[in-house]
Structure formats: C-alpha cells, structure tokens
C-alpha cells in the first residue's frame, strides 16, 4: 500500500485478507477479526458489512440498503455508510 484509499460511489469495497468477517453465535452479532482487534458490529453495521464483498460498488450497496430501509432518505444512508466504511478503510480494515 502506498497511498490513502478514498472511497467514492464507484469504489468496490472489500475486506483485506487480515480482516475476517463472521457471525459469532456466542455474542450474537457480526464481528470482524483483525490483528489484535475484534470489532463487534451492531445490527446495522453488520448488515452493511455483509454487502462489502468485492462485488458491489458503493453506489449499488447504498441502493440495496435504501430499498430495504425505505423509511430513511437515501442521502442519509449514503452519508452514514460512506463514513463508516471510510473509517474502517483508514484503519486498514476495508480496501477497494
């Protein structure tokens, strides 16, 4: 890696090899395992992260969430999802 990844609507985000997503039955939530860290995701973050699989652009990902949660404005979803994934990208837990 040599430069900072900035996510935009055309980015295709995925998890890097060192970050492993799985559902944890003991804690009843989605988690990301990473070196020396465990991220326990809340229900919404868990929904988002399951779509972060290297097949969808950020725009498509937001569309899918907007269809599912049609009470929230798409712009709000886009803002929140981008912020969440950019935060994970800055820590090296999302790549594109």
């Amino acid at each position: 890696m040599s430069k900072r990844l900035l996510l935009d609507r055309d980015s295709v985000p995925r998890l890097p090899r060192h970050a492993k997503l799985r559902f944890d039955r003991a804690r009843d939530c989605w988690i990301i395992n990473a070196p020396e860290r465990v991220f326990e995701l809340d229900a919404i973050a868990g929904e988002v992260i399951q779509l972060v699989d290297g097949t969808r652009t950020l725009a498509v990902l937001v569309d899918e969430l907007a269809t599912k949660y049609d009470q929230a404005p798409r712009a709000d979803i886009e803002r929140d999802v981008t912020a969440m994934l950019q935060n994970l990208a800055d820590k090296g837990f999302v790549i594109a």
Binding site: I32, E36, R37, V38, E40, I44, A45, D80, A83
Partner: peptide, 11 residues
C-alpha cells in the same frame, strides 16, 4: 452507526 467494541487481544 459504527458502534463496534474494539477489544484488545494481546498484552
């Protein structure tokens, strides 16, 4: 929205 608990795993 990002409400993860970050747990350390090493001394």
């Amino acid at each position: 929205m990002i409400d993860q608990a970050e747990a350390p795993a090493n001394a």
